[in-house]
Design a protein around this nucleic acid. Structure first.
Lengths: 200, 200
DNA sequence: TCCACACTGTCAGCTGGCTGACAGAATCGT
DNA sequence: ACGATTCTGTCAGCCAGCTGACAGTGTGGA
């Protein structure tokens, strides 16, 4: 749906990135809007020795470079980008684009709000439970596929590798979830997970 | 500048609120855009027994009701509101409005990012220092005016009343700031505050 | 097949910040 | 002018989660 209007833009610049390369970093020279064609990337904030992943970009996702966040490719990734001024011009010509774009930004704001709520009010365990339930409903299957390893998930939940590992293994011991193999998790006791997710 | 284009909208609905009244709460029936005419209000998230203030609205500020946040008036306040659909229609007719609106939303996203960074990476003391320095540069004067009392500032920094009080008084004892009276603070040692703000 | 290296689990120790409690200061209504 | 109410400062006790350390488990290359 979004790609629909992006295709009407004049031809953009193509770029390829290797695993781990930075697609953009804060304070980059030019303000561009880009769409991810293939591969995947994570949006993250970072400080001294910590990182927090705000979200992941998949093929079709749109993002802008002028943020205070970094974007790092997680696998070989290709993007198409345009200077932001072209978007402004196009909006004048085809206003319905603006509405779509605003909806996109709104979604991001929504996501940011959720994250703020989580960080401010909820324990790591609760955040983990919420994440699991959310993933279950996003991927239709009840066996959920983890992206990357512990480290990445930890930074997605805003915690340390160790804490996440401990918590996850406790959940397994308590029979809330099972892990058939490294990359997959099965939610066994949705009831109790929901309880964990809502309380504190 | 924003009020400029809002005035071109068809006449909106006027509403008055007393101190402490809720202007909007999450999951409200209709999705409206509003502008604050007079008074002030705070945007906040809340859980069981805690609250986090995301920001304050002043005369001229624009906001929408469909968020997961609450908006509470801090003093007798008047707003004008329009159903969100009217904005959509107007964008089609006068596209430059969209650009302004997107800039507004962008600013909010920026603010949200800062908050996330703060909550995830920084200590309360550091956040307090940042806040003070920011207020100093916003209000031109170096004697800064506090809005509301300790409780409100605490929730703005995402901490408890007690912690904030302790920290602030320690800063006073250490000569970083002075407090001529309840409602005002003078920054004495900007240098050290900057240090606190950047580290940890 | 074996070594190197990256990922994972777990533990002990520490600490920032929360909570509840309470006394002192301001402010307000009548 | 004096109770009542709200706001403020401070303290002791507690705990979630961070850190560093280290052993165990994969996994891949030559």
């Amino acid at each position: 749906m979004e790609s629909d209007w992006l295709q009407r833009l004049p031809a953009g610049r193509q770029n390829l990135y290797d695993t781990g390369e930075m697609i953009c970093r804060p304070g980059m020279a030019h303000n561009r809007i880009f769409m991810l064609n293939s591969g995947s990337a994570r949006i993250c904030l970072s400080a001294e020795h910590r990182e927090l992943t705000l979200g992941c970009l998949k093929p079709g996702s749109i993002y802008v470079t002028h943020t205070r966040a970094w974007v790092e490719s997680l696998e070989p990734t290709s993007i198409t980008s345009w200077p932001i001024e072209q978007l402004t011009l196009l909006i004048v010509e085809a206003p319905e684009i603006a509405i779509t774009a605003m909806r996109e930004i709104g979604k991001m704001l929504q996501q940011a709000t959720t994250l703020i709520e989580d960080l401010a009010f909820r324990s790591v365990e609760s955040r983990l439970a919420r994440y699991l339930l959310l993933e279950e409903s996003t991927q239709q299957c009840q066996t959920i596929q983890l992206t990357g390893q512990t480290e990445l998930l930890a930074s997605l939940l805003g915690t340390s590798r160790q804490t996440l590992s401990t918590l996850l293994n406790r959940m397994i011991r308590d029979g809330l979830v099972a892990r058939p193999d490294r990359q997959h998790l099965i939610l066994l006791d949705t009831q109790r997970l929901q309880q964990l997710a809502s309380v504190s």
